[in-house]
Amino acid sequence: MKERPEPPTIVVRHGGAPGPVLREVCAGAEEEGVPTRVEPSGTPADAPALAHAAALASPLEVGVGIDGDGAVAVHHASLPPGAPALALPAGGDPPGWRRAGAVAARIVTGLPIA
C-alpha cells in the first residue's frame, strides 16, 4: 500500500507563539482559501529563521514564522533567508497578524501582497 500524499499546506512554525497571533495568522490564510499546518519548533530561533525553515518544509514553499514574543515573518523558500517577504515586529495588532496570514496565502495564489 502506497501512503497517501498529504495535501499541500502553508507551514506555520512557532516557538511558543501567543495564541491570538497564531489564530489570526491562520484565519488570514483561511479567508484567502489556502490551508495551513501548524508546527511547534524544537529549536529556538527568530521569526524570519522560523519562517524560512517552515517555507523549506512546505510543499507550497511558503512558510510563516512566529517567535515567542509574537513577532511574525512570512517567507518563500526561494528568497534569501535574511530577506523575508514580510516581517512584523513583536507587539503587533490582530489586523496585522491577519494580514500576515493573507500575505502568505497570496504568495501561493499569486495575488498582490502590498
Binding site: L79, R106, I107, G110, P112, I113, A114
Partner: peptide
C-alpha cells in the same frame, strides 16, 4: 536578484 515584495504579482 529577488524582486521586491511590493511588486509581487503586480
Amino acid at each position: 536578484e529577488p524582486l521586491p515584495p511590493q511588486v509581487f504579482a503586480r
